[in-house]
């Protein structure tokens, strides 16, 4: 009821605004569409400098400028706060403006589930999903467990402790789905950052962890940690012959979206322009290099397919988190 009334309100407000601006909008709209892009682009990074989202955004901006794919200036702005709520809230407020863009990451799905944000991921104009963050299940290097099957067998006898980063996060969701399908129980231990998580496994505090491959690759190479399975569609080459959970017989189907979005209600022409441009971006050697170094799974879905992906991911998350009581 509340949501309906707030939607009504915003629809009314948008209507009033459109009526008030009817003349300028009518004249600016088509002109914008024809020679898009002809103005400076404002790129919102919803996190502070140095994080995963920031590095991806700056890599993309670098590629767009180096290959002269965007004819005008691009200004990157870090608008951090509230796990992305502030930055994406800003872009959401720029309804219809095709010169606003932002990159998404895991919090794009999880923050609206946790907080009362005025926006949902599906409200924005989707450009493309570029890659997804998938995780690897690891045990300590000297563990007796060598395969994911052995892990599940042992887990059925004695519920293991599995560590990951954050509670409302894919780190928790993936083992939860796995445990339901395989039929075991586990205790999840939530950490703030990769450093604490990795030392928790090395110090024999936990039975297993879920981690970003990039952060544990060195520890896998030195045999301090042993990878059992990867949650994505295909295992990245750097991980060698580690099976995916799908190959092991479990359908996980969630991962965190690294993609690009425009504000809601942007002209179709601008969305199409960006889809065409991104098709060129993902072919550049710089982008391939970025994926390889960050060990991300390439996962490209354009336009509406991206919106569908966001919807399924969020629904799946909401269902599991609601069962756990983490969200209402």
């Amino acid at each position: 009821m509340n949501r309906v009334s707030s939607m009504l309100k915003s629809a009314l407000a948008a209507g009033a605004l459109a009526a008030a601006l009817a003349l300028p909008v009518a004249s600016a709209g088509p002109a914008d569409a024809q020679d898009y892009p002809s103005k400076r682009l404002e790129w919102t990074i919803a996190f502070g400098p140095g994080g995963g989202n920031d590095i991806m955004s700056r890599t993309l901006i670098d590629i767009l400028q180096k290959h002269k794919l965007y004819p005008e200036n691009i200004v990157a702005e870090n608008r951090a706060g509230g796990s992305g709520a502030v930055g994406w809230g800003y872009v959401f407020g720029k309804k219809g403006d095709p010169y606003q863009i932002s990159s998404t990451s895991g919090s794009f799905v999880t923050t609206p589930l946790q907080a009362d944000t005025p926006w949902k991921p599906t409200d924005f104009t989707p450009i493309a999903l570029l890659a997804s963050d998938d995780l690897v299940l690891l045990v300590k290097g000297d563990s007796e467990i060598e395969t994911v099957q052995q892990f599940i067998e042992a887990a059925k006898k004695k519920p293991p402790t599995i560590g990951g980063i954050g509670a409302v996060n894919v780190d928790f969701i993936i083992p939860k789905i796995l445990s339901k399908q395989a039929g075991f129980d586990f205790d999840y231990v939530s950490f703030n950052a990769a450093g604490e998580l990795n030392t928790a496994l090395l110090s024999n505090s936990l039975d297993a962890i879920m981690a970003n491959p990039g952060e544990v690759l060195g520890l896998i190479e030195s045999k301090d940690m042993r990878p059992l399975a990867y949650s994505g569609e295909t295992t990245p080459p750097a991980l060698g012959d580690v099976p995916t959970l799908k190959e092991a017989g479990y359908e996980i189907g969630v991962s965190l979206p690294r993609g690009l979005i425009l504000p809601p209600d942007v002209p179709k022409e601008a969305q199409d322009w960006w889809i065409e441009t991104i098709k060129k971006v993902v072919e550049t050697p710089e982008w391939k290099d970025y994926l390889e170094k960050q060990i991300l799974t390439e996962n490209i879905r354009y336009g509406e397919d991206f919106r569908t992906f966001l919807k399924t991911t969020q629904d799946r998350f909401a269902e599991i988190l609601r069962e756990q009581g983490a969200i209402k």
Partner: peptide, 18 residues
Amino acid sequence: VDLETGQQRFTFGSAELI
């Protein structure tokens, strides 16, 4: 956000305090 359960504590609905 409570690290263990993911629930919000004393944020009074403010996104900035998450």
